[in-house]
Design a protein around this nucleic acid. Structure first.
Lengths: 151, 151
DNA sequence: CCGTTATAGTTTCATCTGAAACCATTTGCA
DNA sequence: TGCAAATGGTTTCAGATGAAACTATAACGG
């Protein structure tokens, strides 16, 4: 008996991980340098940019971050005056998070930059490949999220 | 003027990151539980399983890890008696890394498990989607690695 | 040769992160 | 009601990680 062939370079989880880290790192560096914004903070900002006034719990759901990470990101954003927090009327445990004017300004600057990054990445693929990628990510996403839900 | 539409859930770098982390985390948990093996250690082990007797520098290249991470992973593997290190004849700075019998045994157990994980993931896609995914990852990988090389 | 520069690898330090414990409040139910 | 369990969120602690400094050796250029 001999061990099965496992070429790390062709191993899907490995490739996904390296590719994703490379992409994220490049973006993270730019956000950090230009806006003093970490990736976690950026995610929170992005969600609040579209869903203003939601609770931390909902931010966590929409960013796939855990509540600890959200708590810390929000604390940082508040310190920089980019996010404002109030207590929910109907439940005093819940917070109501919203962007400040400053936060909206940062969002308005970063969002186009993020979209440009995405376009840059997709520019390496033709239209057909882009469609397949979307479809494949949808399927894998749904499958993994379901898996996660079960465990 | 109003800010452009940015839906985090549909943003490619975000989706790649979450998907990859979900997959990696599931695998990491299992390796940790069953073999006391971190992901970085597993990568080193995987490379040494195929290229025995290489230097740490080459391990770093083949795993997309930096030399610090490799150094630490190797230290851990050596402590557990899974990897052995010698000094290269032709260059006393270089190490010659190899799996011990114990290391080979772990590799022989983990490798099939890793391949099973990959199959499980790919099972959510049909044959055509799998071909496209490979092709797309190849292209993105090459493009990003080239980008990285330039910076 | 000899001194500068480059390379292989390790260590240190400061930061980040996840897990568990924790506090406050609300919900479910006897 | 009132008390146990659940929920939203923060804090604490320990381990992981990245960047820069460091050690040892080799390569290069005069």
């Amino acid at each position: 008996m001999h061990t099965p062939l496992l070429e790390l370079e062709r191993f899907l989880p490995y490739r996904l991980s390296v590719l994703s880290n490379t992409v994220s790192l490049a973006i993270a560096r730019e956000y950090e340098d230009r806006f003093a914004l970490s990736i976690t903070q950026w995610r929170v900002l992005a969600v609040l940019g579209r869903y203003d006034g939601i609770a931390a719990r909902e931010v966590a759901e929409r960013t796939a971050m855990d509540k600890v990470a959200v708590s810390r990101a929000v604390a940082g954003l508040m310190k920089d005056g980019r996010v404002r927090r109030a207590v929910a009327d109907h439940d005093k445990r819940e917070s109501v998070l919203a962007l400040t004017a400053k936060g909206r300004k940062v969002y308005a600057e970063v969002a186009p930059l993020a979209l440009a990054h995405e376009r840059r990445l997709l520019a390496h693929l033709d239209a057909e490949e882009q469609r397949w990628l979307t479809r494949i990510l949808d399927k894998l996403w749904d499958a993994e999220m379901e898996e996660l839900g079960r465990s």
